[in-house]
Amino acid sequence: MDCFALCGNGHCGVIGRQCQGKPCGFHKTKEEQELSLEKARERLRSLPEHQQDAIADKYYGGVRRW
Rank of each mutant, 00 (worst) to 15 (best):
R41N: 09
H27C: 13
Q18E: 07
E31Q: 13
G16A: 03
Q51A: 13
C3L: 13
P23Q: 03
H50M: 03
F26M: 12
N9T: 02
A40N: 11
F26H: 15
E31A: 14
G25L: 10
R65D: 04
S46F: 00
Y59Q: 10
L47V: 00
C24V: 09
E38M: 09
R41E: 09
Q33W: 15
I55V: 12
C24R: 03
R64V: 01
C19N: 04
P23H: 00
G16H: 11
K58P: 00
V63H: 15
G61S: 02
G8W: 01
H27A: 12
N9I: 00
G61A: 01
C12K: 03
S36Q: 10
G21I: 07
G16N: 11
R45N: 13
K58C: 09
T29Y: 06
G10I: 00
P23G: 01
W66T: 09
A54P: 03
A5D: 05
V14M: 06
R45P: 07
L47H: 05
A40K: 13
A56W: 01
R43L: 15
V63C: 14
A54Y: 05
G21N: 08
A54V: 06
I55S: 08
K30L: 06
D57R: 09
L35Q: 14
P48D: 11
L6C: 07
S46E: 05
V63F: 15
G13S: 06
G10R: 06
E34T: 12
H50D: 12
E49S: 14
G25D: 11
K58Q: 12
G13P: 07
I55E: 04
L44H: 11
L35F: 03
G16D: 06
P23K: 04
E34F: 05
G8H: 08
C19D: 04
K22A: 14
G61K: 04
L35A: 15
G8I: 05
Y60M: 04
R64T: 04
Y59K: 10
A56Y: 03
Q51G: 06
R17H: 14
S46L: 01
A56T: 06
Y59V: 14
